[in-house]
Design a protein around this nucleic acid. Structure first.
Length: 933
RNA sequence: GCCCGGGUGGCGGAACUGGUAGACGCGCUGGACUCAAAAUCCAGUUCUGGCAACGGAAUGCGGGUUCGAUUCCCGCCCCGGGUACCA
């Protein structure tokens, strides 16, 4: 080959890897396993973007490195292919989402192949394929058929709960369940009707239906999860989102709150992700306190983290939505309360002035029996704690602000603290005052006393509260997993697991029905299993017993909450995954993906894994040991300046003299020195065909700004174009060379030249006159040192996820070897193995050119000899007046110039040590620096 | 407000447990090769004073510890991300 032809070479080895199944993993292997996982992509119409290319290159480098280190690597890929964009496209075009999804997947696959990733495609999965969502439906069935046994701290089969109810009712059962389940005995249970039993069980199941406040997006006609809502609008589409009460499927993730929190500790995950999950779960320990309502049967229960401040309570505040508001408000205030409730429906967080309304009712202080006014105010959230707080203006700033605004009393319950300007909320450095039996105690001691007292009086007790809510699991969409459920008397009934998957029906349109039902409401009889057997009848059939099927589908995160397990045994028809495979691969050793999933996918998937582990299907309760978040890739945008009202464009540094409009210009028309390609610009768009330019130094200089990549900014860089113009190896190297993996960084294609010429330079090192040319001569010390240093640096870089320094190390090695005109096989053969994770195509080509017949991918990574790196360095004793003061270390080959620098350093040091300027500094070359006065 | 992460040349970024700050690459300058261009190679490139030798300053700002600080400690400023009346 005359010169390196990336296109031919890369295509050749991609085919070779695929045909020879180089990266297909097997469970029958004596090597230690290593599971490298990427967050699988949603196959969008826009194709694979640079962010994918970056993250997938990083995991690929790691995977290939682990192959070289002798591991049995599992490195799979698939598609998170259910989702809204395909459905919206279907709404617009009438095209079945399966069709567009298939088309997009083909494109993604082609792009992924072109990158040269070491993926095991025999394990490919698609969440929207029936052979996959069969098992998502199966897991849903298991969730429905499980309850959470708090005493055992794990999920258990619902049959066990039924047996307990039969034996002793629910009094002795400690379960994670709905609030306010009435107590019943075994006799009661037996007397309940079937419907009553089912209704009760629903309050215990891990998948349950309930009226739920949800984020309803009228624009999309569906419910959204918290992470699908950004600043009050939908993340996809940007439609407004409102709160609405609906009958929804929910998953009882709150049962796992404590475990989700506790197990974070042992995970090797980025701190920001752990922090975000910790905050999301939001554990706070405190107490519940019951305040009886004066002249009423009712009582208000509050949650507080500061039971020690109970004697500072001067009023209670309920959320406007609190269920007791209507019943306690006394008639004179009823109207005002209603008005305030209506007003607060459009509450905004962080408003300046507190708002609220007195209900006219009073509560009784549990210890002092004082009358405590009850207010409603929107600073109290309906969705947290008991939706009621005991206000302690002396100890809580929000309460203080509220009290100050409405003229309510502020009581000081701390000694030696000034609360005239604001509350004192620090539980340290003070003790209690004006607090009866708490006086003189520290807040911490006082809290313990109060809790004990509340328990004794049966007015409350210690309580842990979580911010985490149960997960809404219904979406009013078409393109998602259908629930394997039909309804009988309004109660959900499972479709037998033998009939899974319950396939998605065809519909005539993908919009909600005229009656406001989700798109599935349009389907005729659709409950078929894959063998074409009708499973249940649909409510549109006349003359027979009819059971309506579930009309909603599961949310986007359902399929991604367990997919990492399916890769272990992706083709299994009879099980979600075989125990043998699960026990072999167990968990993901390295998971790479974006931080945007921190409180969505990464939390839900931990929850499902714990559930699957509890029920004995999964061998581990955490599925990803190590997580790495890649940084975002920003786009570099370019601007030209058009003089207002003309077709004249003025160069950046002259633009100040004119009145101009900055306009985005396609970044590909700008070179590395920010110069605009004038001809290209004129051709770019017809309206610029006759553009005039005012140049500086004969050039048109553009302005550059870092922005998110977007079509409208003409700064989108497509990986395909880079591969086309340079090569996949170049793209891989440059993506890594940009900067640290975890850091957000700009993509500036201008700089790609450097890594591209590195590859060409490397190629020339191995070739002469177009043919492979390597010398069999033994390497000398200098050459060996270069090789061993590079080996150390490249290995270190990969292991520490500082891939950019690995690229630098390779570049330095090539520069040095080129300067030495080194063409020795002894050096270049191992060098190609070092190159292999980064630029696998060229490495494979070199390897085969050198006469090897096996793939370089499985060749052992070279080891380095630490002696070679440090053996010829010496410690130089630095003497002052003959006395040893310290040692300096230099390599033996330190040049004279550098030694002089050291001497200079010794001189300065001597001034510090003795205050004297030395008369003489003696350097014994390679031995001693002696300073004499 | 609170919680993370980060401030180093014209730019992306190096610097292992404190030890020659600016590796590597882009860009820029000069040179070689070419009719020319591309490609390639060589040299230079933190700022500043100086023809030069050589000197001064510099890792967001101000202090501190140390013979020595990008690195450790204290106080501030700025940027990015997350979160927000969570009782």
């Amino acid at each position: 080959m005359a010169e390196y032809n990336a296109r031919t070479v890369e295509g050749k080895w991609q085919a070779y890897w695929s045909e020879n199944k180089i990266f297909e993993a097997s469970e029958d292997c004596k090597k230690p396993k290593f599971y490298v996982l990427d967050m699988f992509p949603y196959p969008s119409g826009a194709g694979l973007h640079l962010g994918h290319a970056l993250a997938y290159t990083a995991s690929d480098i790691y995977a290939r490195y682990m192959y070289h280190r002798g591991y049995n690597v599992l490195h799979p890929m698939g598609y998170d292919s259910f989702g809204l964009p395909a459905e919206q496209y279907a709404v617009q075009t009438g095209q079945h989402p399966a069709v567009t999804t298939e088309r997009n997947i083909k494109r993604y696959r082609a792009q992924l192949d072109r990158m040269g990733f070491s993926l095991d495609w025999s394990r490919e999965i698609r969440t929207s394929s029936p052979s996959y969502y069969k098992w998502t439906q199966w897991i849903f069935i298991q969730l429905f058929n499980s309850w959470y046994n708090v005493a055992a701290d794990r999920a258990e089969p619902i049959e066990g709960l039924i047996r307990r109810f039969e034996a002793g009712g629910n009094q002795a059962v400690r379960a994670a369940c709905d609030e306010g389940v009435p107590l019943f005995s075994a006799l009661d249970w037996k007397a309940f009707s079937d419907v009553e039993k089912q209704e009760l069980l629903l309050k215990y199941r891990l998948a349950y239906r309930a009226q739920t406040k949800v984020n309803w997006c009228p624009g999309l006609g569906t419910v959204l999860a918290h992470d699908e809502v950004v600043n009050g609008v939908s993340a996809r589409g940007g439609f407004p989102v409102i709160r609405k009460e609906m009958m929804q499927w929910n998953l009882r993730i709150t049962a796992y709150a404590q475990r989700l929190l506790d197990d974070l500790e042992d995970l090797d995950w980025p701190e920001p992700v752990k922090d975000m999950q910790t905050h999301w779960i939001g554990r706070s320990a405190g107490a519940r306190v019951r305040f009886d309502v004066l002249d009423s049967q009712g009582a208000i229960e509050v949650f507080t983290t500061r039971p020690d401040t109970i004697f500072g309570v001067t009023f209670l505040v309920l959320a406007p939505e609190h269920e007791a508001v209507a019943s306690i408000a006394i008639p004179e205030y009823a109207q005002a309360v209603e008005t305030y409730k209506a007003h607060s429906a459009q509450r905004r967080a962080g408003s300046q002035n507190p708002t609220g309304q007195f209900t006219g009712a009073y509560a009784v202080h549990p210890f002092t029996q004082a009358r405590i006014p009850i207010w409603i105010a929107d600073y109290v959230l309906a969705s947290y704690g008991t939706a009621a707080v005991m206000a302690v203006p002396g100890g809580d700033q929000r309460d203080w602000d509220f009290a100050a605004h409405f003229g309510l009393p502020i009581k000081n319950i701390f000694s030696g603290v000034d609360i005239s300007k604001g509350a004192y909320s620090d539980p340290n450095h003070t003790c209690m005052a004006q607090s009866e039996f708490l006086n003189g105690l520290t807040p911490r001691e006082a809290a313990r006393r109060v809790v004990a007292e509340l328990e004794r009086l049966q007015l409350g007790g210690a309580r842990v509260n979580f911010r985490l809510r149960d997960a809404a699991f219904s979406r009013q969409r078409y393109w998602g997993e259908p629930f394997p459920v039909y309804y009988k008397n309004g109660l959900p009934q499972l479709i037998d697991a033998a009939h899974l998957p319950l396939a998605l029906p065809d519909v005539d349109a993908y919009t909600p029905t005229e009656t406001g039902e989700p798109p599935l409401g349009r389907a005729g009889v659709w409950a078929w299993d894959t063998r074409g057997r009708k499973v249940v009848s649909n409510d549109r059939i006349d003359g027979k017993t009819v059971f309506p099927l579930a009309r909603d589908t599961m949310p986007g995160w359902a399929g991604s909450a367990w997919y990492f397990n399916r890769y272990m045994d992706a083709r299994n028809e009879g099980e979600w995954a075989a125990q043998k495979a699960l026990n072999y691969w167990r968990d993901v050793d390295l998971y790479i993906g974006g931080i945007e999933h921190a409180t969505g996918h990464l939390l839900y998937s931990r929850f499902w894994q714990k559930f699957l582990c509890d029920r004995g299907w999964a061998p581990v309760s955490e599925y990803a040991r190590k997580l790495v978040n890649q940084g975002m890739v920003w786009g570099m945008s370019a601007f030209v300046f058009r003089i207002v009202g003309t077709r004249t464009f003025v160069s950046k540094n002259l633009a100040g003299a004119y009145k101009t409009t900055p306009l985005h210009v396609d970044i590909s028309l700008v070179n590395a020195s920010q110069e605009l390609d004038l001809e290209g610009f004129r051709k770019w768009r017809p309206e610029y065909a006759d553009a005039e330019f005012i140049l500086e130094d004969g050039k048109y200089i553009t302005d550059r700004v870092l922005e998110k990549m977007s079509k409208s900014k003409y700064n989108v860089v497509n990986p395909d174009d880079i591969i086309e113009r340079y090569s996949a190896d170049t793209l891989r190297l440059y993506a890594m060379f940009l900067g640290p993996l975890t850091q957000s960084k700009p993509w500036d294609t201008a700089g790609i030249k450097g890594v591209h010429s590195f590859l060409k330079k490397l190629w020339r090192l191995y070739h002469r006159g177009g043919a492979l040319s390597l010398s069999a001569e033994r390497a000398d010390g200098v050459e060996l040192k270069i090789l061993h240093q590079t080996t150390q640096k490249v290995g270190y870089a990969i292991e520490h996820f500082t891939f950019n320094t690995g690229v630098s190390a390779l570049m330095i090695a090539v520069n040095e070897l080129q300067a030495l005109r080194c063409d020795k096989r002894e050096i270049l053969a191992p060098l190609s193995i070092l190159l292999s994770p980064y630029a696998p195509h060229m490495a494979e080509e070199l390897w085969h050119e050198m006469g090897h017949s096996e793939s370089i991918a499985h060749v052992e990574f070279p080891s380095f000899d630490p002696e070679l790196l440090v053996s010829d360095s010496h410690e130089y004793p630095i003497l002052f007046n003959g006395k040893l003061r310290f040692k300096m270390r230099f390599a033996a080959d330190t040049p004279q110039r550098d030694m002089e620098v050291a001497v200079l350093g010794a001189e300065k040091t001597s001034r510090y040590l003795t205050g004297k300027t030395p008369k003489k500094i003696i350097v014994v070359p390679g031995k001693i620096i002696n300073v004499v006065y």
